[in-house]
């Protein structure tokens, strides 16, 4: 899994490319943590190129979401692919991890 981090006006985007599983999840967690510590708790995880996610990947997203909220920010998803969307739906995690059409749209005008 490759991971790129970009900073934008009002949010930062983390983009995992490939399969988000036990081997890649710790890196995602780490990057989210780094962003929060650097003072940016508004984070979009851009899933446009994430083809698969397993329970460890979900664990990393939830961990990131909690940490971001503690820092008075939020963690939101963007451009989830169909397989990822169906996992989020099956686990009911779509109730707390909101998916937006694009990374730019995730924090909109907030």
């Amino acid at each position: 899994m490759k991971l790129t981090v970009t900073t934008h006006e009002g949010y930062a985007a983390v983009r995992p490319v490939g399969r988000l599983t036990a081997s890649g999840a710790p890196r995602l967690k780490q990057e989210v943590q780094k962003l929060i510590e650097s003072g940016q708790p508004r984070i979009v995880v851009d899933l446009a190129e994430t083809e698969f996610i397993d329970s460890s990947g979900l664990g990393a997203l939830i961990g990131g979401l909690k940490a971001a909220r503690v820092a008075e920010g939020d963690l939101r998803l963007a451009s989830a692919t169909d397989p990822v969307k169906s996992v989020l739906k099956l686990t009911s995690l779509d109730r707390v991890l909101k998916d937006y059409p694009t990374a730019e749209a995730a924090f909109g005008n907030e």
Binding site: I62, L65, K66, L90, T91, S92, L93, R95, V96
Partner: peptide
Amino acid sequence: STGLPLAMGM
């Protein structure tokens, strides 16, 4: 499913 997985604390 009728709710989130357990241990999520949301």
